[in-house]
């Protein structure tokens, strides 16, 4: 019998090496929680279980000290993607639910649904813009931005960590396509 969590998290995509100055790397598994709540129901709660929910729509908030382990991407007026360590999903779910007892909300573990990549290096924005039609100028999409959008024929969640550093997250079955698309784009 398989021990719980014993089965190795097989990467859905094998790393494809690009020789270009922009690198595309699959990210290690993360805990990912789809969190929905009407802003009014937050009733002034700025932070829940260490997740900062005060960011504007299409922004990414991450406590400095926590190096991304309690990251909140606000993808819509009532929708956040909460990112945590892969092995802390249950704890986070319990803590958030406890903090919101009696408050209508939705918290769904989608850690296995999503696969992420980092796109990094000078000209990373150009690589993303090979298939993503949104404006990635520093003014329009500064570091700290995050949004759901399109890459080629796949839907992605795009977050900008720094001028030349993005993460691209997609559903697992789109991951080989997204990775292939990005690597192809680095060759231009």
């Amino acid at each position: 019998m398989l021990e719980r969590n014993l089965a190795r998290r097989a990467p859905t995509v094998s790393p494809l090496v690009s020789e270009a100055s922009v690198t595309v790397r699959p990210l290690d598994p993360q805990g990912r929680l789809a969190f929905r709540i009407k802003p009014a129901a937050l009733a002034g709660r700025g932070t829940i279980d260490g997740f900062d929910l005060t960011g504007a729509i299409n922004s990414r908030t991450s406590p400095e000290a926590d190096s991304g382990m309690r990251t909140a991407l606000r993808l819509g007026p009532d929708e956040w993607m909460l990112i945590t360590a892969a092995d802390e999903v249950d704890e986070r779910c319990e803590a958030i639910s406890a903090a919101l007892t009696g408050v209508p909300h939705s918290l769904v573990d989608v850690s296995h649904r999503d696969v992420g990549f980092s796109v990094e290096g000078p000209g990373a924005d150009v690589v993303v813009n090979a298939g993503c039609p949104i404006d990635l100028a520093a003014k329009a999409f500064p570091a700290g931005s995050a949004t759901r959008t399109i890459l080629g024929k796949a839907e992605i969640v795009l977050a900008r960590l720094a001028a030349d550093r993005f993460t691209v997250t997609t559903w697992r079955t789109f991951a080989p396509y997204v990775q292939g698309f990005l690597v192809e784009a680095t060759r231009s």
Binding site: R36, V108, D109, V110, R113, W171, T173
Partner: peptide, 12 residues
């Protein structure tokens, strides 16, 4: 209505 939808097709 207080209802939220999440796609979990690929979670499972």
């Amino acid at each position: 209505l207080d209802v939220f939808l999440t796609s979990i097709t690929e979670q499972w």
